[in-house]
């Protein structure tokens, strides 16, 4: 099959709304379809919350910024937060038939699952009646952090996974969201200065860096970082978790390095508009 050149003007530029206008504006419209977007952050930074909101947004009709599509949620850290999903979609009927949930605990499981997903994605009439347009993997770190005896094998597995995800993202115009943990960064590490701006990342008074190293960083198209901000004073003053949270664009080919505060309420994740 000869490959044909494409005109960039005809490439898809569809975005999946995050379900909040402030966050969408920060990201130039939302999570791009055809892209692998990483959401990294420490535990309880809001990664899964944002993922759930994306699931609802994908199912929402196009008139309200959704894709009117189905989505696939692959969990490596069960249980799937079904109650939270229901509370987020309060009011409207939860689009549960349009959210497929699966689990994978190892690289092998995951790759097999994704191969089956290929078949599911290419069905002309998908089971839920809508095409799948969003794939969430929560989290990639759990898969690769569990078994890491052989660094070389691990990195080739990371690249294999990334290539598969990117291929599916491209072929089926999927928005792919992958969550990642963070690791602590210790000052005085010799190679850290070269990696540069990661040193600016901090969450809950700690210097951190997204997990899975440089190999994985090479694999994502866009890296978002969720943090609990230190500027907010005593985060543990018992005010019901109202410490500051920040969403930061670490790198993305189409966005400058920006950030925005956000909060998590019962109704969902909301960005805080800065006074301009």
């Amino acid at each position: 099959m000869p490959m044909r050149a494409e005109n960039p003007l005809h490439l898809s530029a569809e975005k999946l709304s995050l379900g909040c206008p402030v966050l969408d504006r920060l990201l130039g419209g939302g999570a791009p379809c055809g892209f692998v977007t990483e959401l990294s952050g420490e535990a309880a930074s809001g990664k899964t919350q944002l993922c759930l909101q994306l699931l609802l947004s994908a199912a929402a009709p196009r008139s309200s910024g959704g894709l009117s599509a189905a989505s696939l949620f692959i969990s490596s850290e069960p249980p799937f937060p079904l109650r939270r999903l229901l509370s987020l979609s309060s009011g409207a009927a939860a689009p549960l038939d349009h959210i497929l949930v699966s689990t994978a605990f190892s690289f092998k499981d995951l790759l097999n699952l994704l191969k089956h997903v290929d078949a599911l994605l290419s069905l002309v009439r998908p089971p839920s009646g809508r095409p799948i347009r969003l794939l969430v993997l929560d989290s990639a770190a759990a898969i690769f952090r569990a078994d890491s005896d052989d660094a070389r094998r691990r990195s080739s597995e990371i690249f294999t996974l990334a290539a598969k995800l990117k291929e599916q993202a491209r072929k089926f115009n999927l928005a792919v969201i992958v969550t990642n943990h963070v690791v602590d960064v210790f000052d005085g590490g010799s190679s850290d200065q070269h990696i540069g701006n990661y040193l600016n990342l901090s969450s809950s008074w700690r210097k951190v860096c997204p997990a899975m190293g440089l190999a994985w960083a090479n694999c994502v198209n866009m890296r978002l970082f969720l943090s609990r901000t230190a500027e907010d004073g005593n985060g543990d003053s018992g005010t019901g978790g109202s410490f500051g949270r920040k969403l930061q664009v670490v790198f993305a080919p189409h966005l400058p390095e920006t950030s925005c505060e956000f909060m998590i309420r019962r109704e969902g994740v909301f960005g805080v508009a800065t006074q301009a």
């Binding site: 490959m3 050149a5 494409e6 005109n7 960039p8 490439l11 290539a163």
Partner: peptide, 22 residues
Amino acid sequence: FLANILYFRICSYTEQIAVINN
């Protein structure tokens, strides 16, 4: 300007070799 960027999206190394040879 955009129309004069001939864009090829490659999803595997076999495709990459094929395009470079072409």
